[in-house]
């Protein structure tokens, strides 16, 4: 390599360092700060986690599921987060392969729990109710999974099945423009609606 070529290569050192520094300022500092500022200004609720409050207390996020195993509440997806389910500070799926015996044990345990809580219900169980979500934080279940649980919840709460069913139907979110995504029910919001309905009923 002759002297001229070496000097051309050396000339690249300054732009490499300066451009990285400037682009860091632009894309690593200015861009996220400006986006945060705008987000906090225009969409403060959404940007901070879509928090649900009840009686002035934060009881969860619209978007993050919680663990329910009380038969009087609707149950959500299985969650594989550690060290306890629905750990929203450490999202994780189960990563069980399709033939992993641990997968079948997990599914069978959920089936047994559902049957134990509602021995009379012999209907086939919707698949989303016995499988773990990808995030471990899935806030939703399918309408089918909610309907499956209506008899149990109604009995535990001494409510009419039709009333509980109506509450479920009120909570169904349809597909985007009737096409994209899947119909779903937010489990936390459904359970909150259930609690609210009964407090109103009691008073």
């Amino acid at each position: 390599m002759n002297e001229k070529q070496t000097s051309i290569l050396l000339e690249q050192l300054r732009p490499a360092l300066v451009l990285l520094a400037l682009l860091t300022l632009l894309t690593g500092v200015a861009y996220p700060l400006a986006m945060t500022g705008l987000a906090q200004l225009i969409f403060p609720d959404q940007a901070n986690g879509s928090i649900i409050t009840r009686d002035g207390e934060a009881v969860g996020s619209e978007l993050i599921g919680q663990s329910f195993d009380d038969p009087g509440y609707f149950w959500g997806r299985l969650s594989a987060t550690g060290p306890f389910p629905y750990n929203a500070a450490a999202s994780s799926g189960s990563n069980y392969g399709p033939l992993n015996p641990a997968l079948f044990d997990m599914v069978q345990a959920r089936i047994d729990a559902l049957h134990a809580a509602d021995p009379g219900n012999t209907a086939p169980i919707p698949v989303d109710l016995v499988t773990a979500s990808g995030s471990g934080l899935d806030p939703d279940i399918s309408p089918a999974a909610a309907y499956y649980q209506v008899p149990r919840v109604a009995r535990e709460r001494s409510l009419d099945e039709a009333v509980v069913r109506q509450l479920v139907e009120n909570q169904i979110r349809e597909r985007l423009w009737g096409v994209f995504g899947e119909p779903r029910v937010n489990v936390l919001e459904l359970n909150l609606a259930l609690d609210k309905f009964q407090t109103k009923g009691d008073s």
Partner: peptide
């Protein structure tokens, strides 16, 4: 195991392990 994996308008169906509703 007695699980309903058939897709319809109330049930996404299929292999839902590791997927979001």
């Amino acid at each position: 195991l007695g699980v309903d994996q058939t897709a319809d308008d109330t049930n996404p169906g299929g292999n839902m392990e590791g997927k979001e509703v």
